[in-house]
């Protein structure tokens, strides 16, 4: 009996993996049904359905990048402090002196890559007509995930607290000032007043809510940090679960009828 067989035959191994090693056809089916991580997949697929030239693999890559961002992000959270005093210095230290500071480069480049791959995933799904019935609703979930990916990237952009960060967020969030009715420089905001007092001012409009202040400052840093690390990832995780579940329920990877 070889060592491998001995280990696979032990009680510990068998208690962890609920199936024998996938060496024969039967067990290759069983492994897909009994393993938590694998059961996202069906047991068998059409050969053309998984061809790279057909799927481009962009949805899978986007999900993988999301995992990379989550792991590197958690590691960065152990080090980085979102305060005016420390934010920039911590990033500087990550770049210059900290062991495994490369996590920050991977996190940053992975974020850029994720924005691109999520666009390409949408591009492919459109071009193969995979949004057509019965997959209409999953396309809508996908659009929401696209928006949330952009928001994740946008909120993360502020955290290094350098010139690039603060001014990109200033330019981006200045738009909110002009939201119709809800921004203090938006059309219709003047109508919303009570007894001569404006309800929508620069201390109560959409931009103020987004930034937690009249300008990009410490409150914004804290707000974006929580959005970036907790709030948006929670929503994204839920939507990803729904997205994958619907892919399976709506008939798997799309195929010619």
């Amino acid at each position: 009996m070889s060592i491998g067989e001995y280990i696979r035959d032990s009680q510990i191994w068998k208690s962890i993996f609920r199936h024998p090693a996938p060496y024969d056809r039967r067990n290759r089916v069983v492994v897909m049904l009994t393993n938590f991580f694998l059961h996202l997949h069906p047991v068998s697929v059409k050969k053309q359905g998984i061809a790279l030239s057909y799927t481009w693999c962009m949805g899978g890559i986007t999900f993988f990048l999301f995992l990379v961002e989550a792991i590197t992000g958690v590691l960065l959270m152990f080090y980085y402090r979102p305060t005016l005093e420390w934010a920039y210095n911590d990033i500087l230290a990550l770049r210059d002196v900290t062991t495994l500071g490369i996590m920050r480069e991977i996190h940053r480049w992975g974020a850029h890559a994720m924005v691109i791959t999520v666009w390409l995933h949408m591009y492919r799904v459109f071009l193969t007509g995979s949004y057509k019935p019965p997959r209409e609703f999953n396309w809508v979930v996908g659009v929401l995930l696209l928006v949330l990916t952009l928001l994740l990237s946008f909120t993360g952009y502020l955290l290094p607290w350098d010139q690039l960060a603060i001014w990109a967020i200033t330019v981006g969030s200045n738009m909110a000032r002009a939201t119709p009715f809800l921004g203090h420089e938006g059309p219709g905001a003047q109508i919303l007043n009570l007894g001569g007092y404006d309800l929508i001012t620069n201390a109560s409009d959409a931009r103020f809510i987004l930034l937690g202040g009249r300008f990009v400052g410490e409150a914004t840093l804290n707000r974006f940090y929580i959005l970036h690390c907790v709030a948006i990832p929670l929503v994204v995780s839920l939507l990803i679960a729904i997205h994958f579940w619907r892919v399976r329920k709506d008939g798997g990877i799309s195929q010619p009828l």
Binding site: Y88, I91, L92, R95, I102, R104, E105, I106, H107, R108, W109, S153, F154, Y157, P160, W161, D162, Q163, L164, A165, I166, W167, A168, T170, V171, G172, F215, V216, G217
Partner: peptide
Amino acid sequence: GVVLQAPLEDPASSVKTPNPSKAP
């Protein structure tokens, strides 16, 4: 990540507006 360093500019300053100021 090894070959290309992630961008990091000067510390944030609300008085030094870069020209051009660009969104992400």
